[in-house]
Design a protein around this nucleic acid. Structure first.
Lengths: 171, 171
DNA sequence: ATAGCCATGTAACCAGTTACATGATTTC
DNA sequence: GAAATCATGTAACTGGTTACATGGCTAT
């Protein structure tokens, strides 16, 4: 199992760059749209990874555009690195849900406090679910099978949280 | 909404210390057992947070035990900080699933590569599910409602991932 | 033309992980 | 009682977040 030398976030950028050169801002927007539901990343990460990827020769800088924006394109060795990453052992995913953590200490708080935490969480996940269903619809229409399938994961996740919230005890 | 001044991991430690004084090692073991399924933390974090919590006056060091182990107990102001944390807006949870990220780039890899990633993931989640069901059984028997309920969340999560893996496309 | 806005990029900070040192306990 | 083991704690690094600076674009 060869080491790709990139972390998952950098690999995601390399993946996105397969569609053509992009600036940091464009990459961020695209990552948010296509991957955000199951792989969060921040603008700052993008802007830090890009020069690092350039140092490794995995991307190349193009001609600067307006607003001092800097387009990057993937290099052949970047494609190889991405391909190595695909074949690596995926990192163990870290599940970290703050609302569940609060629930675990239900005995140390009032039922009301806990119930309102549940209610807020339910609002959030319902909204996320509704948004996702909308975007998946257009993605399926545009024939992007894998992107849509990955969104389906996020849908399943939010549904699972909502289902759990219904059953979670407050006292 | 008052600021508790602690992050979720430190708050979890304060929560555990409500059951009585514990050393770093004991806290780590307990966190792993009770919270690990939905709130991962590492030993190093525990050992870093404890002195920080002591600096803030939220825990107090007791008499050193064997193997230079250091017991900590929660202080009244620590209890208040924990209680403030319970009333804070929970941090937005970050969903980051590496297997789904790979799946999103399904068009850039062979069906076999992707299928074997799915298979490995299914193994992992099946195992996790089986383990959880076992521990929940004993937790319910011991009457720990909230702990058991929180574990149920993790069960739901793994089930959702497994369900998604069954439907996820490889080509 | 200028004031405000907003996208771009940077830098400092914080949290999480990995790798290491130390010394007490067990085992033979 | 020497060697191996294992729990405790530390330190260095990586990755993620938050807060800041800069300057082009837009609207009046």
């Amino acid at each position: 199992m060869p080491e790709s030398g990139v972390n998952a976030t950098a690999a995601a950028l390399l993946g996105l760059l397969h569609d053509g050169p992009m600036t940091g801002g464009q990459l961020m927007a695209e990552a948010d749209r296509r991957l955000g539901a199951y792989w969060s990343m921040t603008r700052s990460q993008v802007y830090r990874e890009l020069p690092a990827l350039a140092d490794m020769g995995y991307v190349r800088m193009g001609k600067p555009g307006p607003r001092s924006s800097q387009p990057y394109s993937i290099t052949p060795s970047g494609r190889r690195a991405f391909s190595r990453w695909l074949n690596e052992e995926p990192a163990r995913e870290a599940v970290r849900n703050p609302v569940v953590l609060r629930a675990a200490f239900g005995n140390l708080q009032t039922p009301n406090t806990l119930a309102s935490a549940y209610a807020e969480a339910a609002d959030y996940h319902s909204q996320a679910l509704a948004d996702l269903r909308e975007t998946v619809k257009t993605m399926k229409r545009d024939g992007d099978t894998f992107t849509a399938a990955a969104q389906e994961f996020a849908i399943g996740y939010h549904k699972a949280v909502l289902a759990w919230l219904k059953t979670a005890p407050t006292k």
